[in-house]
């Protein structure tokens, strides 16, 4: 497995996947920090809560398409070079699927790390007066990874199944759009949209006062049952995706 992973690493050279990962992570951090340039006392008093509320929303906009691009970059060379036919005589198809998945998860992990570091950096740069709750930071990191893993699995499967990379990208674009719009709907509907899950586990809710035009963030209970159900669905998508790839004629 390690040798196969190393081979994937070598194949990824000069593909500029790192540039996409870095650009996504940087953009998310800048976008999150952007709102705090002219923050007042009340904004700073709930700075971290604000970020824990807003960043999942930015993730919903950026990551479905971003992860679609990463998955496509990591899978496209096999399609372009028509290498699957030869490759699958040397290595098990299941292993190839897993190696590509691990490669993609590495990039997802880096984005999550950049975003988490960005939260800490924003707190230090803008002097948030709110005390950072490590539990919320860990939850943010974990839920971003979980939701991203589901989306990445979906995109990788599509990128490997479809010869034309246009289709997975269209799905990614639709995912960004549908995920964002579904958040304006009742939870029963938005939970049917997998791309909205970047926001479904957020431990912070917002109360907007129309008269004072002030927003107040308050904690809410973490939906453990929903999260476990989502993890089970992710495992299901993994099994189905792998099965589809293994059964695909090259």
């Amino acid at each position: 497995m390690i040798r196969q992973l190393r081979a994937e690493q070598i194949k990824a050279r000069r593909r500029r996947v790192w540039a996409v990962t870095a650009a996504l992570g940087l953009l998310l951090c800048l976008w999150g920090a952007f709102n705090y340039r002219h923050a007042d006392v009340s904004d700073l008093a709930q700075g971290y809560s604000g970020l824990f509320y807003q960043l999942p929303l930015f993730n919903t906009i950026l990551l479905p398409l971003g992860l679609a691009v990463i998955a496509s970059r990591l899978c496209d060379w096999e399609i372009k070079g028509n290498t699957l036919k030869l490759l699958c005589t040397l290595q098990k198809k299941e292993r190839l699927y897993d190696c590509k998945l691990l490669m993609g998860f590495k990039h997802l992990f880096l984005i999550a790390c950049m975003e988490t570091t960005g939260i800490l950096a924003a707190g230090a740069r803008f002097h948030f007066t709110e005390k950072l709750k490590i539990r919320l930071l860990a939850l943010h990191f974990m839920t971003l990874l979980a939701a991203g893993a589901f989306v990445y699995l979906l995109q990788q499967t599509l990128s490997l199944l479809w010869e034309n990379q246009l289709a997975p990208l269209v799905v990614g674009l639709i995912g960004s759009f549908a995920g964002l719009f579904s958040l304006y709907f009742p939870k029963e509907i938005s939970r049917l949209v997998p791309w909205s899950y970047f926001c479904q586990f957020t431990p912070i809710l917002m109360d907007w006062n129309r008269e004072t035009r002030q927003q107040r963030f308050y904690p809410t209970e973490f939906p453990t049952a929903l999260f476990l159900g989502f993890l089970a669905a992710t495992v299901g998508v993994y099994i189905i995706g792998k099965l589809l790839f293994v059964r695909k004629e090259d």
Partner: peptide, 13 residues
């Protein structure tokens, strides 16, 4: 194929 699309997305944001 994908990099120009993500550039447009980042450009839009």
């Amino acid at each position: 194929f994908t990099l120009p699309v993500i550039l447009a997305f980042i450009g839009s944001i």
